[in-house]
């Protein structure tokens, strides 16, 4: 009777240790997979980043053309451009990244509206010659 009880307890101990080892291995595996996934997300190649930026800029230009801010003769309607709101535009075009539209001539800054110090249209996180985009 005594020896039967002992055998049952021993079996219980062995079983629980195995389960703990398996659980630890599974946990490690899961952590590895999650970390690997995160690393993969961070490791976007420069080409992919450029492609993303290009796609986003094309969407923006398409929208500016639709709203006749870029006219058929390739000229810009500055007054209409100044009415743009970057948050509304991002929402409307489903753009997640910050952007800023600027103008330059021969590498020199062209102020979109010198009086209101508007040098760029877009996210205020982007700074153009010391002034945040508007």
């Amino acid at each position: 009777m005594e020896s039967k009880k002992l055998k049952k307890n021993k079996l219980g101990q062995v079983f629980s240790t195995d389960i703990v080892v398996v659980i630890i291995i599974v946990l490690f595996g899961a952590i590895f997979l999650v970390l690997n996934q995160i690393n993969q997300t961070k490791d976007i190649s420069p080409e992919e980043r450029f492609d993303n930026a290009q796609t986003q800029s094309e969407i923006l230009i398409g929208s500016l053309e639709k709203d006749e801010i870029i006219k058929a003769d390739n000229s810009i309607d500055v007054n209409k451009l100044l009415t743009l709101n970057d948050k509304d535009l991002k929402e409307e075009l489903n753009i997640k990244n910050d952007f800023c539209i600027v103008f330059e001539k021969d590498g020199k800054l062209v102020k979109i509206d010198p009086n209101s110090k508007t040098y760029g249209i877009g996210s205020e996180n982007i700074i153009v010659n010391g002034e945040p985009c508007k």
Binding site: N52, V102, F103, E104, K105, N125
Partner: peptide
């Protein structure tokens, strides 16, 4: 933003040929 990418295209502003740069935080 760690990755600010510039895409540029030529346009006309006030009768002058200029480049429009779109800076995108990618």
């Amino acid at each position: 933003c760690d990755n600010l990418i510039k895409i540029e295209k030529p346009f006309i502003l006030d009768d002058e040929q200029v480049k429009m740069g779109i800076y995108v935080c990618s």
